[in-house]
Write a protein that binds this DNA or RNA. Structure first.
Lengths: 308, 308
DNA sequence: TGCTAGACATTCGCTTGTCGCATGAGAGCG
DNA sequence: CGCTCTCATGCGACAAGCGAATGTCTAGCA
């Protein structure tokens, strides 16, 4: 309807317009803005040329808003306020007073490592909204690379190459534990060799945990009979507690294991420590960087405790 | 908190920002905007300098919004939309598709003259909001001068000077009528001299109407006995209909007089025609100018009928 | 491994816009 | 009748913004 092209409207113009509207005079507005009166005069004239209407009525003593000016006024105020909001939010982003931190983590990292860091982070930066998504490491690596996550705690497969657009920050190396029922002869042992467990009934799930383990110790390792399969932790550990077999538990999840199950470290010669990393884009967010620091602290606190 | 001064943020920048955000690449945005790629590159850099944060992540194939960019995006859209609204409303103002017309009128002009013009105006420009305030002419002249009314229909006192900042547009000259009860001997007359009414009982109100009349014909005029006073039209004409006396009616109000009252023109030698004007600021609004045209047409239609 | 294509960054020169200074024009006020 | 206050305008200087060309980096391909 209004065919005016109006290529670009500079917002400095709107500041001047608002100043004049409040001051009621070009000269007074110029004093407020630190401009000269001539600058204000021509700024207003430029705005009037753009809008195609007189914004002010020129009076012998100052100016007064015309009807077009009265129409424009609330819009100019809205634009000014919106720009101020934008600046405030961007500043809050820099100072971690606001913004969004999108986290990802594989499931056993969600047992203690991430929640602890998250609690400290929330206490320190309550203005930042934090979201967390659980899922397998590969998925998170892709999300970080796609820019849809700011930081993810992953345990990448050692044989697979690190993806593009992702920087890995080493957090800790996690030993593997074997979960046994309390009455098991190995329950009190410091550690155990895989060969010693060759005859046990292994309870496996659909996770890649067992694959990693048994691929790492190929020949010497036991071929589990996989007589029992369980999908989730509760069921697996329930079976162990009932004496139906043994299963693997990553050390990071040790703290959330039911007390009637004994955890014994696997001998380091049999299984390499699983590396736990934080994955970020090459240029992480301010919030992601801060969270990474907290993750490092938490990992250090957790490391001596991983043996339980 | 966010101490950044950020003297002025040009909105052309925001158009560029939005184009890049939608296109996903500087080059594509430049094609859309009709700019070169280098121009877009520096515009974005300028915006990033102002906001103090990277708005886009540079990828080998185009760019992607960073967190700061995601924060800025809705604000930039809001600003763009608001500026578009402002332009649309200002354009509507020019084409009389919108806006506000603030009218004023003295009471008897509100009987037929203004409402008729107003009806045509509303049919022709339904987008314009029209407000109308009744009141004495002096008050309206002041409001127009103060810029608080766009157009007022007034009957200024002939002896008082025209106020400053007000342009008067002549509409018509209104004769004075005398209201008599139907049985009065003069009821059928074409016109009547004031001297012939000297013995009548005059019903006066608080309006300046009678002052104007009797000041205009000082010596020859009758000194009314003012035995009856009534505040409003209904009461005055009711008294006339009951044969209690006679009263004055301005011709513009003739059409709204009850049918059992006879109206007789006063001889032009005894009373000057009362001038009816439209008062506007020196530079009237588009809507006011249009309304003035309609007032002129209505006045011309009304003039032959003022004698009833 | 080298080549090409596509994308952003940068340099250079010019046009355009914007500001300050000074002056002019117009209207109240003593 | 001049004084003073207002906005408008001509002029020169400076900075911003643009286009054209070039540089740099990466991905894909032979």
């Amino acid at each position: 309807m209004a065919g005016m092209p109006t290529p670009h409207v500079s917002p400095g113009l709107y500041e001047v317009f608002l100043a004049v509207a409040r001051a009621g005079s070009f000269t007074a507005a110029a004093r407020v803005l630190g401009y000269t009166q001539s600058a204000v005069s021509r700024q207003i004239q430029a705005l009037e040329d753009e809008t195609g209407a007189a914004l002010f009525e020129r009076l012998p003593r100052g100016v007064r808003l015309s009807e077009a000016g009265r129409v424009l006024l609330p819009h100019a105020e809205a634009v000014r306020d919106r720009l101020a909001r934008a600046r405030a939010e961007l500043a809050a982003l820099r100072t971690l007073d606001g913004g969004l931190l999108r986290l990802g983590a594989f499931s056993s990292a969600g047992a203690a490592l991430v929640p602890r860091a998250q609690a400290v982070f929330r206490a320190r930066h309550p203005g930042v909204v934090v979201t967390r998504v659980e899922g397998p490491s590969v998925k998170h690596l892709g999300l970080v690379a796609a820019g849809e996550e700011d930081l993810a705690v992953v345990s990448p497969a050692a044989d697979r190459p690190a993806p593009e657009g992702v920087t890995l920050h080493h957090l800790l190396d996690e030993p593997m534990l074997v979960a046994l029922d309390r009455g098991h002869p190995y329950a009190g042992r410091r550690d155990v060799r895989l060969a010693e467990l060759a005859d046990e009934e292994w309870i496996v799930g659909n996770e890649r945990l067992e694959d990693t383990l048994f691929r790492a110790a190929p020949a010497a390792g036991p071929r589990p009979r996989t007589g029992l399969m369980a999908q989730d932790w509760i069921a697996k550990l329930g079976a162990v507690a009932a004496g139906l077999g043994v299963t693997l538990v990553p050390a990071l999840a040790a703290s959330s294991v039911r007390p009637d199950v004994a955890l014994v470290t696997i001998h380091p010669d049999d299984v390499p420590y699983r590396g736990i990393f934080a994955a970020t884009p090459p240029a992480p967010t301010v919030a992601a960087t801060a969270f990474l620091g907290l993750l490092r602290e938490t990992a250090q606190e957790l490391t001596p405790a991983t043996g339980r």
